[in-house]
Design a protein around this nucleic acid. Sequence first.
DNA 1: CATATACCTACTATGTCAATAGGTATTTAT
DNA 2: ATAAATACCTATTGACATAGTAGGTATATG
Lengths: 148, 148
Amino acid sequence: MRVSTRVEYGLMALVDIAIHSENGESVSTTEIADRQKISQKYLEQILPQLRQAGLIKAQKGLRGGYRLGKPAEEVLLADVFNALDDSILAEMESPREEGDGALRGCINECLWEKINKNLSDFAKGKTLSEFLIECRNKSIRGWDMYVI
Amino acid sequence: MRVSTRVEYGLMALVDIAIHSENGESVSTTEIADRQKISQKYLEQILPQLRQAGLIKAQKGLRGGYRLGKPAEEVLLADVFNALDDSILAEMESPREEGDGALRGCINECLWEKINKNLSDFAKGKTLSEFLIECRNKSIRGWDMYVI
DNA sequence: CATATACCTACTATGTCAATAGGTATTTAT
DNA sequence: ATAAATACCTATTGACATAGTAGGTATATG
């Protein structure tokens, strides 16, 4: 399954912000774009969406930037999905035109709804802080590199 | 999460074929398209893909059509996915350009790979026959309608 | 006052999706 | 033999989404 770069970049930005705002300072788009090798102009479209969803807070002006909008324990993967991608947690549209046997509706109930529920449950159970810890455990070296 | 109409139509066709070839006769594209209200010309692009994957067998010529290529117990949802959609069970591409902290790779391992594994496990555990039974149990009336 | 920042809107190039269209080869029924 | 119905193949199209690019405005800070 393919995840859009919007979501991927948004998640990377969230992690970057979480790590680099620990000292109390805001993290600017420029910093994130440089560190994570993401187009700055593209990021500038993504971050306001995360802000509108309440996941980050913005500070305008010189020395401004972003911080988390709530504790990392309360930022869910599902929130990121919903903020950045209309379709990823959306269920299939209701069947357009049914044939004789309502087969389409049956497939919808038996399969797509279950698949979407699985995905949704996973995303609702995954917090940013959990994710940070998981990544950290994977590689101390990697973690050090984040902080540098 | 959105599933392509190719996959949806392919699945509907499989079910239709399974049901209507029980008497030993082949099921033609025309029949399926009519019953399920799917564009016939579009179906004509989908069914050969299912045949190449071994899920159905084709019989050319007058009175020809399709039958299952193997018992319904051995037809997996994952097979349908793989036959009709390159991306649905494909993992994310390997990260293009890593920033300082290999964050992208970490996100890949911690999230996308898990999500894909969940989906893949579900799809590999779901057989066509299971699905037929589930649909049947949902509504006797619906089932009758299939068979008519 | 200069600068660095968030934020906003428009544009573009590329690709994918969902069909549509027309034609060929093959098998069966008559 | 012939006609009809079928699978199969290839090309084309219109709409839409994706992944950016570009330029400009408002705002807070030093």
